[in-house]
Each structure stands twice: as structure tokens, then as C-alpha cells.
Design a protein around this nucleic acid. Structure first.
Length: 423
RNA sequence: GGAGAGGUGGCCGAGUUGGUCGAUGGCGCACGCCUGGAAAGUGUGUAUACCCCAAAAGGGUAUCAUGGGUUCGAAUCCCAUCCUCUCCGCCA
């Protein structure tokens, strides 16, 4: 969430920037600042009351020691009064804090000033593209037909075991999954990321800190008996490693990579977009996370973008990089690049990575701070990106590389798959 | 899952017949003295959040796992929750 102190001093800036995310925040901000003013006043009153109570308690103690029971009892009466007042003030304070906080968490992160305007996918700015459109054989098959033709991914079987969106990978399909995971994790490790294997379930505090709660709880699977959430991305547990930490400036940069299965309910999704591997409830993803000094976070973002670029390039997939427009950016992001690969048989661009700088938005919520060189406490910046999400990569690989002889595996992957062709 | 013990500041560790305890002490860390330099020794300092103050200085409040309760007053008493350890059971 946004920092209150920043909001106080930059109302116009915040209002203006949030219009890029198509939000009129003026009313909300006014309410927040009103509550804030009220809160501070209440806090001061409460503190004064408690100070007097503490003073009385000390005096009562001394009077008892001196054996002056009568005087002590007089003071007790005053103390009782103060207690009632303090209780009321405290209730008021908590209500104001809640009001303020509830409003504050509804404000999205402010996007960078140069964020493209717009709210539709076509308003996103294509800032880079690379690779040639593959020459497909006659009557190319979409991946959901290729998977059954070669018996490598079984969607029907997944329905039997669990439900739609939980495919079963078999034989060369399973091996391809494992190969991609190892390839991605190795590439990241070589780029200086520390490998992490996180829990696949997190508690409420973790889900809140990275912003899945309170507004996106319907997108997560919930294990009610224990109060856990299945992670929608490794970003959640990995970023939460740093929750409530006070870092030293010398701890930067922190670079982590994690492979995890991801679980998403995808409530409200249907139709063509969800066909085959395009949208699943359970899928594999390798995620990179960086915790950075604020001065370096945008350099880190470019670094991550370069890393993802090298991955798609090595997989020989035609891809493009989009700078997301305000309306298409996530709630928590200040700047997001999306990577899309072209899946030739579907003739569609598929999003395979989203690389974002959250600046201090997540850090504020999770109290991730550091001491700067002046000894001042400041919020760190958090960033993350997919590197990469598997299913759509697999979809594009299968469709683009199909030949009458089978499906060709890109060179970079062969050491990991152990085969050059899916047949 | 059953029985027992326990959760104190960056770490270790006092304090649990309630009373200036945000908390003795040690380690670590920072700065200074000592030294040619270092070690040892020695001195000072060393939590976080919020509020008051234009700011600094200074002051107030809260925090001894978390949340509630008793009391004029709680790290210390009571209740609930979470977590850790030991033993037993179960188990990849």
C-alpha cells in the first residue's frame, strides 16, 4: 500500500497518477486524510490520559508504601474515571485506524508518469519484438490436438482425477516439463539468483503482505481446516521471506529464484481463452524475485527483462515485449513488462511472463525496510517476474515446432530433455 | 493425536510471593581512549511504532509470542490462540 506520509504531501500527484489506472481517488484520499487528522488528535488525547493514569499508579504505589491508605483511595477514584475515558478513546482510535487502513488498501500503486494511457489489451505498447514466424506444415494442429496425438498431456484424465484445468503429463510430456523447469532454474542460478524451494501453502499474513488479500481471495484455493492458501505464484512465499525484516544496505541486491506449482481458481474465466494449456488451475512456473535499494530498482527491472528475453530467445520462440497500459497493470505494480510468445497454430500471442517493479508498495505492507547510509529507516523496493510460466511456453513449442516427422525440441533444451523429437 | 516444559531486546540470559522494568548482566555492534599498528584493556552509546514539536533538541504513549481479562499498577496473576522443545503414538 501507499505510504501515508507520501500521500499526505502528494495528494495531487497521487490523484493524477491514479487516473492512469482509471481510478478517481480524490474522494477516497480525502476520507483517508480526514481520518488521519482525527486519528492523530485522538491519539494525542489518549496518550495524555494514559500518561495521567501512569502518574497516578506511581503515586498510589508510593502512598501505600507510606501507609497513607486514604489518600491512595482518593486517587483510585480518579484513576477509574480515566480508565473509562481511555477505553472510549481507544475504541475511537481503533475505529479510525481501521477506517483509514481499509481505505488505504483500496488504493492501487501509482504507475510511473510515462505509463501508456488506456484500459484495453490493444492500448499496451509493444516496445520490442523478435523472431520469425514459423513455417507450419499444411493443416497445423493446435496444441490440444498435438498433445493427444503424441499422448503427452491428458486433459480428460485430469478431469477424472480432479477437474478441468488439472492436466496429466505423460511420458515425453512429463519429461518436457521437468526439462523446462531445470532449464529455467539453472539459467537463473547462473545469472546470480539464489534457488529457493518455498512452501506451496501460505498463511493469511503472507497472502495479505503480497496483496492477494483482501481483494483477490476468491482467486486462491483455501484450505479451510488449517486456514492456509495454496499459492497462486511463488512470489508470495518468496517475497514473504523478507517480511518484517530490517535489512542492511550491504544486503542488496537480493535475488531469488523459485520453481513452484501455482494454483489459481480462475473464477470467471471461460471460453476460448481457457482451451488446452492456455489457462490452468494448476501449473508450473519459475519465478524470479529481487529485493533492491530504491536507487537501483529500475536498473534491476531492466536486468530482469534482459534475463527473460534471453530465455525466450534460447527457446527460439517469436516473442514481443509489451509495456502495459495503466488499465491493464496489476494493482500493486508501478511498471510492468509483459512477454508474449506467438503460438502459431492458434495464431495467438500468449502471455508467458510479467515483470514488474512494485517499488515500496509491497514493502510498506510487509514492513520490509533497511537502514540507509545515514542510518535512516527506509522501505526497500520489491520486484518480480516469471522466468518463465510453463504451460503457454509448452503450447507455443508444440505448435510452432510441429512437423510431419514429429515435434522438434529447441537445441537449448535437448540436454535437459534427452531427446530431440517428440514422436 | 496424548503427556510435560517453555516462548524476554541482534544473540545469550536474569527477572514470575505484581509497584519508577523498555527491562540487571554478558556477547555482538558503533564511536572514543590506550597502541607504531593490532589484540587485550577501558569509556560511552546501542529496539521498534505512533503522537506532540516548523525542525533539531526534548517529551508522551505502546510493545517482554499474539489477543483478551483481573488490578490504582502486570514481563510477572487468569483465559484463549499460535509456536518451539522433550517423551509417547502414528507415519513418507
Amino acid at each position: 500500500m501507499l505510504e501515508l506520509s507520501f500521500l499526505r504531501e502528494n495528494v495531487e500527484l497521487v490523484v493524477e497518477r491514479l487516473t492512469i489506472k482509471r481510478m478517481d481517488a480524490r474522494e477516497t484520499i480525502k476520507k483517508i486524510l480526514d481520518a488521519d487528522l482525527n486519528r492523530r488528535e485522538t491519539q494525542a488525547q489518549l496518550d495524555n490520559n494514559l500518561a495521567e493514569s501512569n502518574q497516578i499508579a506511581r503515586e498510589v504505589g508510593n502512598l501505600f508504601k507510606e501507609g497513607k491508605q486514604d489518600q491512595a483511595n482518593e486517587l483510585k477514584a480518579r484513576s477509574a474515571e480515566l480508565k473509562i475515558i481511555s477505553r472510549e478513546l481507544n475504541e475511537k482510535l481503533e475505529a479510525l485506524q481501521k477506517e483509514q487502513n481499509d481505505l488505504l488498501v483500496t488504493l492501487p500503486n501509482i504507475p510511473r508518469a510515462d505509463t501508456p494511457e488506456g484500459y484495453l489489451a490493444e492500448h499496451n505498447l509493444t516496445i520490442y519484438s523478435e523472431g520469425e514466424m514459423p513455417a507450419l506444415p499444411e493443416n497445423p494442429l493446435p496444441h490440444w490436438e498435438l498433445t493427444s496425438k503424441y499422448d503427452i498431456i491428458d486433459f480428460e484424465l485430469g478431469v477424472k482425477l480432479t477437474g478441468a484445468g488439472f492436466p496429466v503429463y505423460k511420458g515425453q510430456g512429463a519429461r518436457l516439463q521437468r526439462a523446462l523447469i531445470n532449464f529455467f532454474v539453472n539459467e537463473a542460478t547462473e545469472a546470480g539468483y539464489l534457488e529457493i524451494q518455498p512452501p506451496l501453502m501460505v498463511n493469511e499474513a503472507s497472502a495479505y503482505a503480497t496483496g492477494q488479500l483482501p481483494d483477490k481471495d476468491s482467486q486462491m484455493y483455501y484450505v479451510g481446516l488449517d486456514g492456509f492458501y495454496l499459492i497462486p505464484t511463488a512470489e508470495v512465499p518468496v517475497t514473504n521471506i523478507y517480511r518484517d525484516l530490517m535489512l542492511k544496505e550491504t544486503d542488496f541486491p537480493i535475488k531469488n529464484v523459485a520453481y513452484s506449482q501455482c494454483f489459481r481458481r480462475e473464477a470467471g474465466s471461460y471460453g476460448k481463452d481457457v482451451r488446452g494449456l492456455n489457462r490452468l488451475h494448476q501449473f508450473d512456473k519459475v519465478e524470479i524475485v529481487q529485493i533492491q535499494h530504491p536507487d537501483n530498482s529500475y536498473a534491476a527491472l531492466e536486468d530482469m527483462r534482459a534475463h527473460v528475453t534471453s530465455l525466450v530467445r534460447k527457446l527460439e520462440l517469436p516473442f514481443r515485449v509489451l509495456r502495459l497500459c495503466g488499465g491493464d497493470m496489476s494493482f500493486t505494480s508501478a511498471l510492468t513488462y509483459d512477454f508474449e510468445v506467438f503460438s502459431a497454430a492458434q495464431k495467438r500471442w500468449l502471455e508467458v511472463s510479467s515483470v514488474s517493479n512494485f517499488e515500496s508498495f509491497q514493502a510498506n505492507r510487509m514492513k520490509l525496510r533497511f537502514k540507509d547510509s545515514n542510518g535512516k529507516t527506509r522501505l526497500a523496493h520489491t520486484l518480480n517476474g516469471s522466468a518463465l510460466a510453463l504451460p503457454r511456453i509448452v503450447a507455443a513449442l508444440l505448435e510452432n515446432n510441429q512437423t510431419p516427422e514429429g515435434i522438434r525440441i529447441p537445441k537449448a533444451l535437448v540436454p535437459y530433455t534427452g531427446f530431440e523429437w517428440i514422436k
